[in-house]
Design a protein around this nucleic acid. Structure first.
Lengths: 186, 186
DNA sequence: GCGCATCGTTCGTCAAGACGAACGACCGAC
DNA sequence: GTCGGTCGTTCGTCTTGACGAACGATGCGC
């Protein structure tokens, strides 16, 4: 248990301090509300130790932040990607282009893509890693989207979510079909 | 430390079993790779104990799943929302409608909205909870989007991400402007 | 069949996480 | 100024998480 890349304890410490400052509560009060000793919180905020899951969970509840956020370091800034810019996902098909708008932050899995597709052969995707859900909102055009055995026809403004860990498809029915795709690991 | 709603230890146990089954590895091999004792993993998979963060982190790395996923129980199904359907977010402005396409799962914060707006007065938003980031992809029309003190004009296919915990705005410049908005708590 | 390796579970032991107490610092009321 | 309350840090103690060893079960090769 000393060889694996460790949990970001310094990040956890900084997050605990940051979130407590946000609430304006004292260390003693947060500890009291979380039902832990203030000496424990003092140690954690200084980066000492290796807290149990229950301890951290209680603190995330008290500080009213998602548990996973205690493990995230940075704050993004304003970021703009114009149509046609940004890294395209490698594709052997010229009639289907997915551009990465927002890659996943560390130790989480969610990506935001802009998909542009032309009518042609079906874009069938192999199943992704288990637990992946894909959310698609059609912007322009028309497409068949969803599980490979039961795709749904979407018009602009339509939305679908489906498990991305099963065979699925995206097939444009009109030229210059455009969609926003959020790939999320739940 | 006994009064707060506890960490979902049964969920963690089930997740560990599920993910290990997915990898096809034995309990002993996963433990070896994670650098922990197999007796520890055996206990965790049976829901006994209260693991430290380091232990769970090592397991998430070994099982190649996001840390937060060990805390999530369920799997979503296929879900379709047509344009004009779905719960609208309460708005006192008829020229700005945000429809909830995918609400946030438990203990996470991310929502997917479809925004439809008409030119009119600026839609200025108060800052959300600290740590919120908003991703906006413009589908049709034109709009000024982003931090209230420095909004960016977006055309179809353009993307912006900005901190949602500062004053921000969405102002349609053309009729029937439509956008996908992902609100994420990082 | 036997021997070996690996498995998952259980058990006893150790050390670190979490506890409560003590301490000096700080603040507000009198 | 003193007093009381609260603060965050440090310390000693206790409890439990994680360890390695032992065990019975299983599978494979001979």
């Amino acid at each position: 248990m000393s060889q694996s890349p460790g949990a970001p304890l310094a990040v956890i410490a900084a997050s605990l301090q940051r979130e407590r400052r946000r609430t304006g509560l004292s260390l003693a009060e947060v500890a009291r509300r979380a039902g832990i000793a203030k000496s424990t919180l003092s140690q954690l905020e200084s980066g000492a130790g290796n807290p149990s899951v229950e301890t951290l969970w209680a603190l995330s509840v008290t500080l009213d932040v998602p548990f996973a956020q205690l493990f995230e370091p940075n704050r993004p800034r304003v970021r703009v990607v114009r149509k046609g810019e940004g890294p395209a996902v490698a594709s052997e098909r010229a009639d289907y282009v997915a551009t990465v708008l927002s890659p996943s932050p560390p130790n989480a899995r969610r990506d935001v893509y802009l998909v542009t597709a032309q009518p042609g052969e079906e874009r069938a995707s192999d199943p992704h890693m288990p637990g992946v859900v894909e959310h698609v909102v059609l912007s322009t055009g028309r497409a068949l989207v969803g599980p490979a055995d039961d795709p749904v026809e979407l018009a602009p403004g339509d939305y679908i979510a489906y498990p991305g860990d099963l065979p699925h498809t995206f097939r444009a029915l009109e030229p210059d079909t455009m969609a926003v795709l959020v790939s999320e690991h739940v």
